[in-house]
């Protein structure tokens, strides 16, 4: 098991290169990647401002990745999360997991996404035709987290 690859950055990332990094060794039978993108909203999204807590973010993401490694037999885990100003169509983040079998890779990627939604210290502010507003956390995201058991 290798250390998780955690990147917090304003810059975009190379999805293909990140997926290829996890295609390592003859035992890795499955690589799953998930990419989150900024989508347009009803009132016309100009841009999104992603604020984060720099000294906590990397630690929180590492913690989440290590929880996934403890639950599933993974040969690799990558979490990349952007911050700063992002526009519709921009990539926000990605997770990638690699394992011997697809179930572990798929489930752990889903677990990572559910944890990132509610436990990674990021806050989104949307600027639309109607002005600026903070995106509210959704109860359904919190419920999704609960479904994985105690954190």
């Amino acid at each position: 098991m290798s250390a998780p690859r955690i990147i917090v950055t304003e810059a975009d990332f190379d999805l293909g290169a990140e997926a290829a990094r996890l295609e390592d060794g003859p035992d890795t039978g499955a690589v799953v990647t998930f990419t989150g993108r900024v989508r347009d909203v009803k009132d016309g999204l100009h841009y999104m401002q992603l604020e984060h807590y720099p000294s906590m973010t990397e630690r929180a993401l590492t913690d989440i990745a290590e929880q996934a490694q403890a639950r599933w037999p993974l040969s690799g885990v990558t979490i990349i999360h952007r911050h700063g100003t992002l526009r519709p169509g921009d990539r926000i983040m990605m997770v990638a997991t690699a394992s011997r079998h697809r179930d572990a890779a798929l489930q752990s990627a889903s677990f990572l996404m559910d944890y990132l939604k509610s436990r990674a210290p990021f806050w989104k502010k949307e600027v639309t035709d109607k002005g600026a507003s903070w995106v509210e956390a959704r109860q359904s995201d919190e419920d999704a987290l609960e479904s994985w058991g105690k954190d």
């Binding site: 989150g36 807590y53 806050w123």
Partner: peptide, 25 residues
């Protein structure tokens, strides 16, 4: 830099952060 409940003792902490529920991902 660790998420904790509001009734947590400050003990010898150096930094406390306050924020709304997180909206990552």
């Amino acid at each position: 830099q660790r998420l904790v409940p509001l009734d947590t003792p400050l003990a010898d902490a150096r930094e406390v952060a306050f924020f709304p529920p997180m909206t990552g991902g």
